[in-house]
Nucleic acid binder design. Structure first.
Lengths: 347, 347
DNA sequence: GTCGAAAATGTAACGGTTTACATCACGAAT
DNA sequence: ATTCGTGATGTAAACCGTTACATTTTCGAC
């Protein structure tokens, strides 16, 4: 109401002595506008400090140039970097990014309702690591919402995934090569991890590597907690309390690994006693000498954004059969990398 | 174009046998709608899967229910937590948050233009730690843009600030109490920090504490780098290379402190040789025993969001003289807290 | 049964763009 | 001189809600 709206396109048109259509075309750099006209209109618009109201443009075109990023949190090490990559890319392409954390992945119902509410709010959605059910995905799809998922797959939407099986395999293999045969696991999913979730795939990679070396699975060596340092510390304590503790442990994130390391210290141990390998290549991993599997969260974010923009531009092309396995190539080929430090070398 | 728009309010009205005005009122829970009508309309809207197009509502009301959060980065330890707090609060109040990092605070011109472009895009702006010039602030203000600043002040807008002078003072005082008299400083601002920026205030607190103890300032003890572990490491190396290195160092962030700690290790030293105190209370500070001044970034984010919403609701109330010093009370009284760990206790 | 106030509902203007289609101007070709 | 084509510009109809104001209904009081 008292909200002071600035000059409208009509004001500019009047001032410039042309029609609103011409102003609209001139300002947006469309063809079929005389060069002189364009310059004059631009000058007048600048002078009047005119700025097109995006709400009106959105109403007219149906495009908002807004993308919603849905992540478990906004301040996790991985997610904040994912977001940074996605946001930068979106901005460079003329979009703005709405960050929307969904803390409670349990409440699928609520969450879905939430997403559906967004229908005309944004041009598209990037949903990260939330393992939406196929049913929910189908609903979103039939509502005409454009979605790209990251870290998990659905039938309906393109997905950008990191090869997390490989992450788990690589890490475990590294420990095996180091001569370890009793290898523990610290997962970040307290409950039974979904088969195709990030922790689920890493677990599968771990199991697969063990199997490939003919080592029997001992589930007592699989501990889990939350994806935090504290969660890692507790899990490691449980491992250390075993009658026959592992000599090497694959920890699903560096932050958890820091906690695990702390648990060692608390018992007067170091990683010459228990080797540890983490995931992420957290800035501080180098400082404490933690071996890790480096990921490229920024690049995955960028790739997701790019995929979504393509989906938006192509007005919804996506053929499940062909395209369902949409891998972040950058993340696959360049991103996943073993970084060996002191935490896994025998002294 | 081919963008399939769903049912409009008119469709619902027709179906329900009432006018669009009634539908609008019913769905938004406005008064003066018969209870029966409200229920019926709601039911029909649900059945039709009707969802009001926010762009139309925005055009009509001039309110977008969008807030833009401008921070130096989106993935820094402090900023990601600030964002988490702000976003949660905004969402709980029916707003969505657009995250917009501005990497290059140097380019004031560009940055300002950027901000002005947002005029009708969002209901308000939260600008964190970017030290906009008074001139730029005045321009924003006269453009009618609602802004709350955090981490710095302007004449024109309410600011949410943490008492960073106190942070510096507290940290330095703690070292003084520990018996140190030769106290170094590692700042996160490579160049001369602005007097009222976060690093500037912490520096002032450091200087103030030294002065209060009658200790002369030795600028060779003031080193600075970027706000990263690597920056901290390098700065610490410079300090250690001095003829008469400090016995205690105030480091402006925990991440930098981790780097500083690493520099000690590289020389075979520990913090029984050089005491270190950081800022933030990073999750990993506890793990390595780093003493720190705990901040409450989430709460500062929340407070900023709350202040902005008030500014929006009150339609722009803000009296510079009275209100200019708008302190995040939570952050002042509860947030700043000294957490003593092993890095500053003599062994 | 009437009157009047309050509640419920309807009408229509308005917000500011975009864009399909119509029109116009101008030069080239005939 | 006429016609045609092409580029430049204008006209007006969407787009879809919100809301001031008008109108109708309801209901209690007399």
């Amino acid at each position: 109401m008292s909200r002071n709206r600035g000059p409208s396109i009509e004001d500019v048109a009047r001032e410039a002595g042309v029609s609103v259509a011409t102003v609209s075309r001139a300002l947006r750099g469309l063809p079929n506008v005389a060069e002189g006209t364009r310059i004059r209109v631009q000058a007048i618009a600048d002078k009047m400090n005119y700025r097109a109201d995006p709400s009106a443009a959105r109403l007219a075109t149906g495009r908002t140039h807004l993308v919603q990023l849905v992540t478990p949190t906004v301040d996790g090490w991985y997610f904040s970097r994912f977001l940074a990559g996605a946001i930068d890319h979106l901005i460079s392409r003329g979009y703005e990014a709405i960050s929307h954390p969904v803390e409670n992945p349990e409440q699928r119902e609520l969450f879905l309702a939430e997403l559906l509410r967004l229908e005309k709010r944004v041009d598209g959605l990037i949903v990260v690591d939330l393992n939406i059910s196929e049913e929910a995905a189908a609903q979103l799809h039939s509502a005409g919402i454009r979605v790209v998922t990251a870290g998990f797959r659905t039938q309906k939407f393109p997905a950008v995934i990191v090869d997390d099986y490989r992450v788990g395999f690589m890490a475990t293999e590294h420990l095996l090569h180091g001569g370890h045969s009793r290898i523990g696991l610290i997962s970040g999913e307290p409950n039974h991890p979904l088969a195709f979730s990030v922790p689920g795939l890493r677990l599968a990679g771990y199991t697969g590597a063990l199997a490939a070396s003919g080592i029997p699975i001992d589930t007592s060596l699989e501990q889990s907690g939350f994806f935090t340092a504290e969660g890692g510390r507790r899990a490691m304590e449980r491992l250390l309390a075993l009658d026959d503790p592992p000599t090497g442990v694959f920890v699903m994130s560096d932050e958890m690994a820091f906690g695990a390391w702390r648990a060692l210290q608390d018992r007067g141990l170091s990683w010459s006693d228990v080797a540890i390998i983490g995931v992420d290549d957290h800035e501080l991993a180098a400082l404490v000498g933690l071996t890790t599997v480096r990921l490229a969260p920024r690049e995955v974010g960028t790739a997701s954004a790019e995929r979504l923009l393509r989906l938006i531009d192509d007005d919804g092309d996506f053929t499940p059969g062909v395209d369902a396995v949409d891998v972040a190539n950058a993340a696959r080929s360049e991103g996943i990398e073993l970084v060996v430090r002191s935490s896994t070398v025998r002294t």
